[in-house]
Amino acid sequence: MKGIVKNNFIQLRKDRVPIANGSEKVVEALTNEEVERVLAYVQNESKVSIRNRLIVHTLLYTAVRVSELINIKHGDIEPLTSTLTVRGKGGKVREIGIRNDLRELMKIYQAGERKESKYHDSEYLFVTQRSPKMHRDAVRNWLAKISDDIGMKLYPHLFRRTCATLLLRRGVPVVTVSKILGHYSVELTSKTYIQTSRADKQSALNLL
């Protein structure tokens, strides 16, 4: 099907002045250490529900937009192939591979916490106590609420940027990352994410 892709993969303001070609320009994204800090926090069952832990893992390991996240339906999850069908901007559809640990967390949420909800019959994966479908503001507000506890400003799109940035830094081809993100062109991904930081250039020169 056209527009479908399949993959198993899963600092910081932009300069406000004109910069020369090749100058430092970095994307706002979490470092590896910050990712570990966030994941350790959401692992605390006394502070974070299974649903909210799943939200963080889904944002980080699929790079979906928050609007795409709240629109995930049960039928979008294919357990046999471990894939997630995502309906993005402009009605474009893409298929993303689901990590095993993410799939297991989905199962735990669906079989436990979600099953006990009065909206357990909802077609949407993420439900709330008041609605059969979670609202994007609920995701944003919760991330903002835990930001002080974790010691960094969190918001949904940060996880999308982090996923893309880490994939590129680990050598995943930009074409693959572009398809995971659902970008309309590789050029958009390149323009947004392929940049050279001061540290990158210094490390390169140290190889001489």
Rank of each mutant, 00 (worst) to 15 (best):
Lys107Glu: 14
Gln110Glu: 13
Leu125Pro: 00
Tyr61Ala: 00
Arg136Phe: 11
Ser82Met: 15
Leu105Ser: 03
Pro79Tyr: 06
Ser147Ala: 11
Glu123Arg: 06
Leu80Trp: 06
Tyr119Phe: 15
His57Asn: 13
Glu113Asp: 01
Leu80Thr: 15
Leu102Gly: 06
Val86Cys: 05
Ala63Asn: 04
His74Asn: 15
Val93Gly: 01
Tyr61Leu: 11
Ile77Ala: 03
Glu95Trp: 01
Phe126His: 03
Asn141Cys: 07
Leu80Pro: 01
His74Phe: 15
Ile55Thr: 01
Thr85Asn: 04
Glu116His: 11
Arg65Asp: 06
Val56Gln: 01
His135Glu: 15
Tyr61Glu: 05
Thr83Tyr: 09
Arg114Lys: 03
Pro79Asn: 09
Glu95Ile: 14
Met106Gln: 07
Leu69Ser: 01
Gly75Thr: 13
Met134Ala: 07
Val56Lys: 05
Asp137Cys: 08
Arg136His: 12
Thr128Asn: 10
Ile70Gly: 09
Asp149Arg: 03
Leu69Trp: 06
Ser67Pro: 03
Ala111Arg: 15
Lys115Ile: 00
Val139Ile: 12
His74Val: 02
Tyr119His: 13
Leu59Cys: 12
Glu78His: 15
Val93Met: 12
Arg140Trp: 14
Val66Cys: 12
Ile70His: 07
Val66Asp: 11
Arg114Glu: 08
Ile108Glu: 13
Val56Trp: 04
Ala63Phe: 13
Thr81Tyr: 12
Val66Gly: 03
Ile77Lys: 05
Ser122Tyr: 04
Ile55Ala: 00
Lys118Pro: 03
Lys133Leu: 06
Ile77Asp: 03
Ser117Asp: 09
Glu78Asn: 15
Ser122Ala: 05
Ile55Val: 14
Tyr124Asn: 02
Lys118Ala: 07
Lys73Cys: 10
Ala111Asp: 14
Arg87Leu: 13
Tyr124Trp: 10
Tyr61Pro: 08
His74Leu: 14
Ile108His: 08
Trp142Asp: 09
Glu113Phe: 00
Leu59Glu: 07
Lys115Thr: 05
Lys89Phe: 01
His120Met: 11
Asp121Phe: 07
Val127Gly: 08
Gly90His: 11
Arg65Glu: 11
Lys73Ser: 08
Thr85Arg: 15
Thr83Phe: 02
Gly75Ile: 11
